[in-house]
Structure formats: structure tokens, C-alpha cells
Simulated scan of single mutants.
Amino acid sequence: MNDMTSTAAEVRLEEDAKSAQTPDTRDVSRAKPGWIVITLLSLYLLLYLAGAAAAILSMCLGDLEGRWAALRVGLMCAAVGAVGGCLYCLRAVYLNRCVRKTWTNEWAAWYLIRPIVSTCCGGISFLFLKAGLLVLESGTKSDASEIGFYALALVAGLNVDKFVAKIEDVAQAVWGIDQSRTRKDASPTEKPAKRQAGAPEADAAGPSESSAVTGGSPSAE
């Protein structure tokens, strides 16, 4: 009886030793940083950035003709906003993967959509400046320089959440349009939520880029 007990114990010890030498494949797969996804997202962002830069260069050289020439500043603002969004996302990739090592593929959709949203915000910034609803400098509206338009478009592309919040404030003050449900639900006195692993810094606590960051991931700037 004692021999059988000792034999069973030895078998269990051997099995434990083998399992210790062979790591769990599920843990290994979870530990992988998702290089394929990172590579594809980086290529997408670089191509988007190159396209925006090429568009800016083309418009600066005066390639727009006819009816499109009248839209040059607005299109430039959209392209500059795209540049800001791509820079934001590229910085997020290397911060999450290389610096903080908190990359997760769950945020892949965010990296795909964010540059598009930044492009739209860049174009919208032109509309609000042109309408005089946003002012670049005190007492300056109609004679604002094009550089000021582009600077605001870049900021709008970099920090979408703050820009959208500003637009909502303007809409409420001018037309009485109430704030969106997202802003209503966000309590200004509420403490920042803990950042999710791999989440862009700005979006650490959810969809709002104005959330404070306690750890690391792309930036809310």
C-alpha cells in the first residue's frame, strides 16, 4: 500500500515538473503583443498621414483649380486635422507597445476610426471660424490669418474630445442646443477612472479623451 502511495506521489511530481517546463499556450497567446495588428495599424496610420501631407503639399502648390479653389482653406484645415489625428495615434502605438507595454488589440477599432474623426474635426473648425462662432484672438474674426485656421485645425485633430466639447458649448450658447448625453453623464467632480490596459491615454476611462490618465497609453494631452 505504501509503495502504491509513493508511486502515485512520484507520478504527480513528474507531471507537475512537466507542466512547469511547458508554459500554458493560452497564457503565451495572451502575452503576445499582437505584432500583426500593430504592424497593420502602423502602416494604415502612416499611409493616412502621407496622404494628408500630400494633400497639404498639393494645395500649397496651387493644384486646386476652378470651383475647388474656393474650398482650399477648408480642405487644408481637414488635412491638417488628419495630420494631428495620425500623430496622436502613432504616438499612442509606441507608448503602449514600447514604453508602457500595455498594448491590447481591443483598441484596434479606435486607431482605425480616430484619424477619420480628426479629419472631420479639422474641417468643422474651419466652418466655425469662418462663421465667427470661434475666435482666434480677442477682437479678431473676419481678418484671421490662414495660419490661425490651420493651427486650430491641428489642435482639433489632436484633441477631438476637447474640441467637440467646445463646439457643444458654442451651440448651446448661440442656438440653445442642449449638450450631448455623453457630456451630461460625465460628472466634473467625479474622480478619473483607472486607465484600461492598452487604452489610448485620452480615452483611458472610456470614450472621452478628456479623462485624466493615471497610467500610460496614448495621450489625452
Score class of each variant (00 low, 15 high):
Q196K: 15
R67C: 10
A186C: 10
D27P: 08
P23L: 03
V135E: 07
V160D: 02
E168L: 03
A199E: 08
R91C: 09
L136G: 07
G66D: 10
P33Y: 10
E201H: 09
G215R: 14
N96T: 15
I38Q: 05
Q196D: 12
Q21I: 09
W68R: 01
G85R: 03
R100F: 14
P33M: 09
C98M: 09
A156I: 09
K101W: 06
A55Y: 08
E14G: 01
M76Y: 01
W35R: 12
A171H: 09
W175F: 10
P200Q: 00
I38T: 06
V160H: 02
A165Y: 15
L154P: 00
P207G: 15
S219E: 12
G157F: 09
G85T: 06
W107C: 13
L158N: 03
R183K: 14
G66A: 06
M1E: 14
G51R: 02
W110V: 15
K162T: 12
C86A: 14
I38C: 03
S187K: 04
C120D: 04
A108L: 05
A92D: 11
W110F: 14
G198E: 04
C89G: 00
A78I: 04
R26A: 10
T5A: 11
L90T: 02
S217G: 14
A153E: 01
V213E: 15
V117T: 05
A70Q: 01
S210C: 13
P192G: 12
S145P: 05
E14K: 05
E201D: 13
I167V: 06
P207C: 12
G66V: 01
S142G: 12
A109D: 11
L41W: 07
L57S: 15
A109G: 06
R30T: 13
T104L: 00
E10V: 15
K130G: 01
S6I: 15
G139M: 10
D178R: 07
K101V: 10
L136K: 02
W68F: 09
C77I: 14
L47Y: 11
L112G: 05
G62H: 03
C89P: 00
K101P: 04
S138G: 11
S219M: 05
